[in-house]
């Protein structure tokens, strides 16, 4: 097992270099650079723009730029942001944590609601409760998360009780430990709901489908026939088999953790990475984009690794030797 993990890590290095090369090339091959916006300002001379471009080595061929970036990367230097004129790492730091909190909250909510809901719906197939869950899933799936966020904000602006966006109350610093947690939870509720509702709908449907598939198998019939209690049939025999494909899915979801919520972050004024990265891509803030792509790439590889390990644990039939 350990050998597998080690091998995966070694393969990851050329994979990441490949991802970075692709991204770098794609950004550089599109016309223009970050300082294009300055070119339409009547008060800024071309000489000034040249000075800026020289400062960030944008006047050199992109292969040279890439090489310099890669060398710095191995020394732990992510480069400077053109926009913010500070180290990329110092911008990302706090926002990474904020995005992680939101992603974790919606991840937990989604999985802890969707899995039981899917099982429940499968067990009560075609009964009223199943139909109701499926109806809500359809509606949830077809509502974009940012739109739902907007609606939630509007609803709570009318009834009150929850902060309209943001992450901390203005008096956050003065709150007690428990007060801080409560304040954070209050702020988390709207964005978490906005992100999770759609995913719950999707995941619940997958879970239900898997479960129904497994319940059709003959060993379930056999288990029932030998007189096992129903809950044991469902939770011990059926569930363990039905959940396998979801573990693979979990690996993929992991890579989307940091980027999946950009629009909701914008709507809910959540100080996360998503909105920062969206602006960076649009304004061609090269090294900030690179940092985000690399993080996404790393998370993707880690997510797949975790999924593979979990699969071995959950299903004794799978082996990597």
């Amino acid at each position: 097992m350990l050998k597998i993990i080690l091998r995966r890590f070694l393969i990851a290095i050329p994979q990441l270099v490949g991802i970075s090369l692709m991204t770098f090339a794609l950004i550089q091959l599109t016309p223009g650079n970050f300082f294009d916006t300055l070119k339409l300002d009547p008060q800024i001379s071309p000489q000034t723009i040249e000075r800026y471009e020289k400062m960030y080595h944008l006047n050199e061929p992109w292969v040279n730029q890439y090489w310099a970036w890669l060398k710095n990367l191995f020394q732990g230097d992510l480069g400077y942001s053109f926009f913010y004129k500070v180290q990329v790492s110092s911008i990302i730091g706090s926002r990474l944590f904020n995005t992680f909190i939101l992603a974790l909250a919606s991840f937990l909510l989604t999985w802890f609601v969707a899995i039981p809901l899917g099982i429940w719906a499968a067990v009560h197939r075609n009964r009223f409760i199943d139909r109701l869950i499926q109806l809500f899933s359809y509606i949830a799936l077809s509502t974009p998360s940012f739109f739902l966020g907007m609606i939630l904000l509007f609803v709570f602006s009318q009834i009150g009780g929850l902060p309209l966006g943001g992450m901390h109350s203005p008096d956050y610093e003065d709150l007690s430990w428990g007060g801080k947690v409560f304040d954070l939870l209050k702020h988390l509720l709207i964005p978490t709901l906005a992100i999770s509702v759609g995913s719950i709908g999707a995941l619940q449907r997958i879970m239900r489908g898997n479960m129904l598939e497994v319940l059709r198998h003959q060993y379930i019939l056999a288990a029932r026939a030998k007189g096992l209690p129903e809950h044991r049939v469902i939770y011990h025999h059926a569930l363990r088999n039905a959940i396998n494909p979801l573990i693979t899915l979990l690996g993929y979801e992991f890579s989307g953790l940091l980027s999946g919520a950009a629009l909701v972050e914008i709507i809910c004024s959540w100080p996360g990475l998503g909105s920062l990265m969206l602006t960076a891509v649009r304004s061609k803030d090269l090294y900030l984009v690179m940092a985000s792509m690399m993080m996404g790439g790393i998370l993707f590889l880690i997510g797949n690794l975790i999924a593979d390990i979990l699969l071995v644990i959950a299903d004794p039939r799978i082996r990597y030797d």
């Binding site: 509007f154 602006s157 966006g165 943001g166 203005p170 914008i266």
Partner: peptide, 20 residues
Amino acid sequence: IVYLIIQNVDVGLLKFLDGE
């Protein structure tokens, strides 16, 4: 003076109407 950073102008308007 407090500046709230609200990226979406519609949400900014909502906050104005809400009195914040």
